[in-house]
Design a protein around this nucleic acid. Structure first.
Lengths: 153, 153
DNA sequence: TGGTCTGGTCGATCTCGTCCACTTGTCGAG
DNA sequence: CTCGACAAGTGGACGAGATCGACCAGACCA
């Protein structure tokens, strides 16, 4: 993971469809060697995938909400996690240090769907309480921050 | 935005580097027509970009935290938002319906950086209080949820 | 000194992206 | 009913990109 790898990662992070030829021009190498580096970055788990960024509202997922989960004492986290994973509307799931030990980011088409979703999460064994916050607007999301400095492989 | 567009969006959402030729095979069209559809989806703001997904830990951003912001009465939200945007470590920023009117997702290399960041956010005029929660682990993040149903353009 | 390994270049070949002309189907106006 | 306009797709052609193998230079070590 040298400076060239960092540049490649930064470029792909901002535009995931940049061609190898273009990357090669940017970093001053040839396409095959860039491809080789990218393949290694993928193998090493630095690059874990590529995604098109979609406007949620445009595909009918107009409502975004954050749901905090407070567990009870008997909570089986493995089980909770599995059941959460089975709910497709949960786009992100963080395990937190705090009273609310999970935070979920969910997206649904309508308020009724959110209500249903909250009930479904609340019904999971081990979940004592949930706290939902509606997002009024997303100022920005997943903005790529440049690779901070040289880093071991 | 018909069924074919939805399939294309779903495919690109899971793998943003899928070639037009491959998309064409999947949806039963030719490459040029798929390209035409994708271009339109980009123009209409359905597809807003493409990103490589990077393992934050692998690039030295091992610490993820959520910061809630409680504003004071004199808060100028335009100004707060601008100042937040200027902080690169803030990867996402949501405007919420609640006492904590913003929630930030931040990533930093070390705890010291997080402390510094909290002070910087707390020093923004209009910010009365911040509440930071460390994420112990990210179960999953930005999992693409399929396009829910037919949707007007 | 010589062998090996890593990371790069070069060139050939195949696929893909992209442009353009043509076709088909739909719909509204005359 | 017919005509023209428009949207959406097809097919072909051509240039650019992806990909593979062969080869090369420097680092490292026995």
């Amino acid at each position: 993971m040298d400076e060239i790898d960092q540049t490649i990662v930064n470029l792909l992070r901002t535009d995931g469809r940049t061609s190898y030829a273009e990357l090669a021009r940017r970093v001053g190498l040839t396409a095959p060697s860039v491809q080789d580096r990218v393949t290694k970055l993928e193998k090493n788990g630095v690059i874990t995938g590529y995604k098109a960024v979609i406007d949620s509202e445009a595909i009918g997922l107009g409502i975004t909400a954050l749901i905090g989960i407070i567990p009870d004492n008997a909570a089986d986290h493995r089980d909770i996690c599995e059941r959460l994973r089975a709910i497709p509307q949960i786009e992100s799931c963080y395990f937190l240090a705090g009273v609310e030990c999970y935070q979920l980011k969910v997206r649904v088409p309508k308020m009724g769907d959110l209500e249903q979703l909250i009930h479904r999460v609340g019904a999971i064994p081990g979940v004592a309480q949930t706290r939902t916050t509606i997002t009024l607007s997303t100022k920005w999301e997943d903005r790529p921050q440049p690779v901070p400095f040289e880093q071991a492989d």
